[in-house]
């Protein structure tokens, strides 16, 4: 549905984004993650036609944005980082204006009422936008993006300013919309992205660092699989017994307290050693108090990815300096 191909945007000598490529299939929810200044908003601004690109290509449903902007823009609803609201208008009048602007061919009054209900702003429809709280303003911004039910929704940090209840409702709403819409959604809240999105693209320093399915992401980057066990018994004997199990590569003692040892076991990826651990420990009469898989948390993953991109950037700069000499 959305195809971004070698997209670059430069401001003079500064490359805001470089060779960004990813695709979003119909009905997919893509999460755009990255530190501040990474280039997420720039990418979204180019996809929606607000900013021009320096090079590359963006197509929405096969239509190239720079060649046929009108047709492409008809398919997109955009909520920028700061919701674009005319603060002197009432909510209903503003949505009426956006309805006319987008040339939506639906019964106006009913459609706006429906959208307001979906966004949870029916109770403030007559209020002037200037007088709304941040959370409500954000919701009005979301409502204007949703008007006409465009096939593609691009949302830049849509949950900023919402209270915890509103955030939960919003996530449910995105998930339900995701079935009928293609959504790109950027956030700093990693748990939110992993909960809602089918795929995650991490952007750092203007470049794509990773593009994976959410479920595959942690697995790909955590290296060899690990299990943490909490066993009652002497540490030395327990570790020794564990190391003898087939497939175990390494054992690390995490803690030892009151006869309980916590150990991290790294094992080969094609073997499930949990049954063997049980059998061996039971034979030696060392009760297993707790056993669980370790998955690299998204925070650790994010830090790892963005740190590695910064390191490679620094190395390139150093090499460049040496090169000049």
């Amino acid at each position: 549905m959305i195809e971004v191909s070698k997209l670059s945007k430069a401001y003079g000598k500064l490359n805001a984004i470089q060779d960004i490529s990813f695709t979003v299939d119909e009905g997919e929810i893509l999460g755009l993650l990255g530190p501040n200044g990474a280039g997420k908003s720039t990418t979204m601004n180019i996809i929606t036609g607000y900013l021009g690109k320096t090079s590359g290509k963006v197509t929405i449903d096969g239509i190239e944005v720079s060649e046929k902007p009108k047709e492409a823009k008809k398919k997109v609803g955009y909520l920028p980082e700061i919701p674009p609201l005319y603060t002197d208008m009432t909510v209903e009048k503003f949505l009426g204006f956006v309805f006319d602007l987008k040339g939506i061919e639906l019964p106006k009054k009913e459609h706006i009422a429906e959208i307001m209900k979906t966004a949870g702003i029916s109770n403030v429809s007559g209020r002037i936008i200037k007088n709304l709280s941040k959370g409500y303003k954000q919701r009005v911004g979301f409502a204007q993006a949703l008007l006409g039910y465009p096939p593609v929704l691009v949302l830049d940090e849509p949950t900023v300013g919402l209270d915890p209840n509103q955030i939960i409702e919003f996530r449910k709403l995105i998930k339900s919309l995701g079935k009928k819409h293609t959504i790109i959604f950027s956030s700093h809240i990693l748990s939110e992205v992993s909960e809602i999105c089918d795929r995650i693209v991490v952007i750092s320093q203007g470049k794509v660092v990773t593009d994976e399915k959410t479920s595959d992401l942690a697995q790909k980057f955590s290296g060899a699989p690990k299990i943490v066990v909490d066993i009652q018994g002497p540490s030395a004997e327990v570790c020794q017994a564990l190391r003898e199990i087939e497939g175990v590569l390494k054992t690390e003692l995490i803690s030892e307290e009151n006869g309980e040892v916590k150990i991290r076991i790294t094992h080969k990826s094609n073997i499930d050693i949990r049954q063997n651990i049980f059998t061996v420990m039971a034979a030696k009469n060392y009760p297993i108090l707790e056993m669980g898989k370790v998955e690299l948390s998204l925070e650790e993953l994010y830090l790892q990815l963005t740190a590695s991109s910064e390191n490679s950037q620094n190395n390139t700069e150093k090499t460049g300096k040496r090169g000049k000499k």
């Binding site: 036609g49 009108k70 823009k73 674009p84």
Partner: peptide, 14 residues
């Protein structure tokens, strides 16, 4: 200033 230029420029109006 309001950021509504984004709304106008991303709409299908020339």
């Amino acid at each position: 200033k309001l950021g509504t230029d984004k709304l106008l420029l991303t709409s299908p109006v020339s």
